[in-house]
Design a binder for these strands. Structure first.
Lengths: 195, 195
DNA sequence: CAACATACGGAACGTCGTTCCGGATACCAA
DNA sequence: TTGGTATCCGGAACGACGTTCCGTATGTTG
């Protein structure tokens, strides 16, 4: 999958200037719209914000998931990269796991509707699912393995299940002051411990 | 709120026969449609199944939530009533809580899309939310109190938060074989324990 | 059997995601 | 500079859906 064509001629002759400009404009507009109305904001609203037609959105981002991934790519990468660092810095693997999960939760609950979108099994969200899993499951797996190896937690839960569960706990967390997703995630992580 | 007019004349002169018949037909059709396509099944599908127009559905059940509540009322009642019984039968309050939560989870994950609907903050689902909370929160509260009094679990989690968290963990559980909501709920309940 | 209240059916409307294509625009070669 | 062409844009158009509305049908009652 990785392309190693540096040095050779570019088979992609570089996009038109207006196209590149629009792509950036769209990312900014989508980002603002997500903050204002959640990731479920109507496509037309994003288009209006960016001052373009809806067709332009679909040309650059074939599915809503592509747009979401593009907007949040940096933060997801940062979260993924924090995993190994936390493992090195923390006193125990379980502490690292807890801190890393907290990063993930903080990211999710500040993005209105993202956690819900993450659980959607609609075909349009396939890309979103795939990207999150590709980047985060291996990191979580590493933390989980370390904690298991240290004898701190039960060994019968995989990274996918844990991440999905944590993501689920964050659904709707931003819109109900009575619901404290952070605390429930803490309880869940506590439940991993071997008594 | 409770009406104590038994014995007095009935201000509601009893509905027309065809209306009563249609209400029952609709409940059966909705129940079948929920099983076949989840609680998100289009209203028109339910109408077609029942052999009525969509207007008839809205007349009997103003919101989708009303329909869902009507279809599952019996099961929800049964779950609520099982709480005190479990508390009496189980060896410890925590065991009763765990068994009761399992009943709730079993109910949720067999109803495609219900857990997701339960988290929706759309106005149309207000009735659904209210009914679940009215019936189940007091029961859960009772179990939780007993377990706290017995010194088994941490005292800083309320019934609302726990039920909502468990409901969240069940979102999408029926459509992803890799995701085991039951196990995650077990971990969560285990996390309640004072180590 | 009339006459009235009640309930029914499904057309119609607004919203949304998504597709499609005629026209505009950037790029490049001459 | 100028023409030609590949690329890109805008927004109309379509289908699915929830929801409302009203002319018509049907049961109920006197």
């Amino acid at each position: 999958m990785a392309e190693i064509d540096s040095g050779a001629e570019q088979p992609v002759p570089r996009k038109r200037a207006d196209a590149r400009r629009n792509e950036k404009t769209l990312l900014d507009a989508a980002s603002a719209a997500f903050v204002a109305s959640g990731v479920d904001v109507p496509v037309r609203d994003i288009a209006a914000r960016a001052g373009v037609g809806v067709g332009t959105i679909y040309r650059h981002f074939p599915t809503r998931a592509d747009l979401i991934v593009a907007v949040y790519r940096h933060q997801i990468e940062a979260c993924a990269e924090a995993g190994p660092a936390l493992l090195a810095d923390s006193r125990t693997p379980h502490a690292a796991l807890e801190r890393w999960i907290n990063l993930f939760v903080d990211f999710l609950i500040t993005k209105h509707g993202l956690a819900a979108a993450l659980q959607s099994d609609a075909a349009a969200f396939q890309t979103l699912h795939a990207y999150f899993l590709d980047r985060l499951v291996p990191v979580c797996d590493q933390l989980l393995d370390a904690a298991v190896a240290a004898g701190e937690i039960r060994p019968d839960l995989d990274a996918y299940g844990l991440l999905r569960g944590v993501g689920n706990l964050c659904v709707g967390a931003g819109s109900d002051p009575r619901y404290d997703a952070r605390r429930l995630v803490q309880v869940l992580i506590a439940g991993l411990r071997l008594h």
